[in-house]
């Protein structure tokens, strides 16, 4: 259990500033998720923490010790790569034991640790196979096991589930989270999938273009986004935004409300025409074209009356309206 602190960390590749003055505390024993659109520098920041890239400016502290110049292995962190990066010419057993072997751990201890990790991850039957003979989910577990064997101070995950199919992905989400909680280990998890961030995190860090937009617990970020970008990025379907007179009525440049905060109301002020309906069974996502041509999305209960072309009217829940100023900053959040 270790905490990781970034102080004013910057990194540039050529002329582009990939991470810009990042200040961040990764609390010990917690599951922190980095989320943000593609290319915003999540992977780079993770690699800076791992020591796979050099920090240009700023400090990296692990348990209070400056690790900026420490080689990757000596930082005591373990990383799970998106491509798994298993050693293709080694058996699962050798893959799991590699870190211990290069650290000159006695063979008996290696064998014991490998067995224990294999048991934990349900890999015991696969120990003598090569990675090529494993399924995607099994490879993923070997990659996690390889990180686990070292008993690291923290886990670093870079989009570890993006190569798996949807069912396996949600199963692995739960497994990773359970494992992390059981071990009480610090974890940093990179994803661009906001649903993954919401379901797994103790703490979410939202990035955009190399900067942190907001840090907080999932529900806090969901309920009180500090700016329009975060409001739009977290939550699916995406928050609806309106500007102009309707926003001015609330004393804001832009207002936003989530699809589930719209109430069907024949006398509502948001009037329009249904364009498409996505039936999910238990609920329906209704895409509506308002009178001023703005498109909004509403989450409704399944209702046969909802069909393309039908007129429709809503009232947003006034308590759930987010207000933003002309700099896209939220007006009600500190």
């Amino acid at each position: 259990m270790s905490n990781i602190v970034l102080e004013r960390v910057s990194k540039r590749f050529g002329d582009t500033l990939v991470t810009d003055n990042i200040d961040l505390v990764i609390p010990a024993g917690k599951f922190t998720v980095f989320v943000g659109p593609s290319g915003c520098g999540k992977t780079t920041l993770l690699r800076l923490i791992a020591g796979l890239e050099d920090i240009d400016q700023g400090r990296l502290l692990i348990d209070g010790a400056d690790m900026g110049q420490t080689p990757p292995a000596a930082r005591g962190l373990a990383m799970v790569f998106q491509s798994y990066a298993l050693y293709p010419h080694m058996s699962v057993r050798a893959n799991l034991g590699f870190a211990l072997k290069v650290a000159h751990t006695p063979p008996r201890d290696i064998a014991a640790r490998v067995e224990a990790v294999a048991k934990l991850l349900d890999l015991s039957a696969l120990l003598d196979r090569k990675p090529a003979a494993l399924s995607g989910g099994q490879r993923q577990r070997v990659a996690i096991g390889r990180a686990l064997v070292r008993e690291p101070k923290a886990f670093l995950f870079d989009e570890p589930l993006s190569n798996l199919d949807a069912a396996l992905r949600s199963q692995m989400r739960i497994e990773i989270r359970r494992l992390q909680q059981d071990l009480g280990i610090t974890a940093i998890y990179v994803t661009h999938d906001q649903a993954e961030a919401m379901t797994m995190a103790d703490q979410i860090v939202v990035f955009r273009e190399g900067r942190i937009e907001q840090v907080g617990a999932p529900l806090e970020i969901y309920r009180r986004p500090t700016n329009r970008f975060v409001a739009g990025f977290i939550g699916s379907p995406c928050m609806n935004f309106l500007s102009g007179a309707r926003a001015a009525a609330f004393g804001a440049t832009t207002i936003g409300f989530r699809p589930e905060h719209l109430r069907l109301d024949a006398s509502g002020e948001l009037r329009g025409v249904v364009r498409t309906v996505e039936h999910l069974g238990n609920e329906a996502l209704v895409h509506v074209q308002l009178e001023d041509d703005t498109m909004i999305t509403a989450r409704c209960t399944e209702d046969t009356a909802l069909h393309p072309g039908a007129p429709i009217a809503f009232t947003p829940d006034p308590a759930s309206i987010h207000r933003f100023d002309q700099d896209n900053r939220a007006l009600d959040v500190g």
Binding site: A50, L52, P71, P72, A73, A74, L77, A78, M79, F81, Q82, S83, A85, L86, Y87, P88, F98, A99, V102, A103, R146, R150
Partner: peptide
Amino acid sequence: VPGEILEAARMDGASLTQ
């Protein structure tokens, strides 16, 4: 050769020669 595999080795504590 995927670079990530070599990085994994580096994270695992392999020296450059290893």
